[in-house]
Amino acid sequence: MGWEYGIRTTEPAILPEVVERLAGALTFTEVYSLEHQANGFVLKREDPSWPRALEVWVEEASGLEEVVDGESYIYCLFHMWGQEARSWMQQMERETRQVDGGLTWFEL
Rank of each mutant, 00 (worst) to 15 (best):
E4C: 06
G6M: 05
I7K: 00
I7H: 02
T9A: 06
T9V: 09
T9W: 02
E11M: 13
E11V: 12
P12K: 08
P12E: 13
P12G: 10
I14D: 06
I14M: 07
I14T: 05
P16F: 03
P16D: 04
V18F: 02
V19S: 01
V19R: 01
V19A: 00
R21W: 05
L22I: 01
A23T: 00
A23W: 00
G24R: 03
A25T: 01
L26P: 01
T27C: 03
F28D: 00
F28C: 01
T29Q: 07
S33W: 08
S33C: 07
E35S: 06
E35F: 04
H36M: 09
H36C: 07
H36Y: 12
N39Y: 07
F41E: 00
L43Q: 00
K44G: 01
R45C: 05
D47H: 10
S49M: 14
S49K: 15
P51C: 07
R52H: 10
R52V: 11
A53I: 02
A53Q: 01
A53K: 00
W57T: 04
W57H: 14
E59H: 14
E60D: 10
E60T: 15
A61L: 12
S62H: 15
G63S: 14
L64Y: 13
E66I: 05
V67E: 06
S72Q: 14
Y73S: 03
Y75F: 15
C76S: 04
L77T: 06
L77K: 13
L77F: 15
H79K: 15
M80C: 09
M80N: 11
W81S: 13
G82H: 10
Q83V: 14
Q83I: 12
Q83C: 09
E84S: 10
A85S: 15
S87I: 09
W88N: 04
M92V: 04
E93H: 12
R94V: 09
R94M: 13
R94G: 07
E95F: 05
Q98D: 01
Q98H: 01
V99T: 06
D100I: 07
G101K: 02
G102I: 01
L103R: 00
